[in-house]
Nucleic acid binder design. Structure first.
Lengths: 113, 113
DNA sequence: ATGGATACATAATAATCTTATGTATATTGC
DNA sequence: GCAATATACATAAGATTATTATGTATCCAT
């Protein structure tokens, strides 16, 4: 089962920042594959969503970039900036609280999952 | 703390349908107040988001409506249709699975919340 | 050498929300 | 009584964020 896109909306930045927190240094395509693998294909980040998001994170100073050549092919690595580290911590605690709130509001008990 | 709007995105229909499942018959304003109360002001549904959503649910045949007059003021009651009952069950199980997936992906443990 | 995977990027479109505005009635405090 | 707030509906302009489509180019396996 692939999650309906509307559910994933609003969580993409958090997912990307979390990956960068866990793996220090990643490139775009790698992030899509890692998330796909970790979620057993249930979350598939499209390129049209990912790249604008990465550019926005960079513009906000939350990530820094380094471009490398692998053979003749360009690869753009992203890393969390100090500002990005603070941000992901905020996002995670907000997400945790949000999930608790939703669980209560929607009456979702652990056995339902 | 009020949740950032992007988090709530994509969950509004589920919240509304769940309220109608729990309370059988509600009007729009009542839904906003109930949700605000249940979430201790952390989720505040705006009217600009609510009414278009309710109209969309009606257009999709997920809810039925009855208009009543309270004094001279109109009140529009919404109820779940059979199709809506099926839908909310689907949405809730999807949401439950999504939350489990996010918990794993973001490494959120219960103690963080 | 052809197809699929890797790897970047952007544009047109769609969905869904915020903010602002509009209308109108009911209630509460002074 | 009247002003402010709450109740109750609705829509429109604009912002955000995603999908889908398209473009370019390299690498690898058959």
């Amino acid at each position: 089962m692939i999650f309906s896109s509307e559910l994933i909306k609003g969580t993409l930045k958090t997912i990307v920042l979390k990956q960068l927190e866990s793996n220090k240094r990643m490139y775009g395509y790698e992030i899509t594959q890692r998330v796909k693998e970790l979620t057993k294909d249930r979350i598939q980040i499209t390129e049209g969503a990912l790249y604008p998001t990465l550019h926005a994170l960079e513009a906000d100073g939350l990530v820094t970039t380094e471009t490398e050549f692998i053979g003749k092919r360009v690869r753009k690595y992203y890393s969390l900036s100090p500002k990005g580290k603070t941000k992901i911590e905020e996002k995670l605690s907000e997400m945790a609280e949000f999930m608790e709130t939703m669980k209560f509001l929607l009456d979702i008990n652990p056995t339902t999952a």
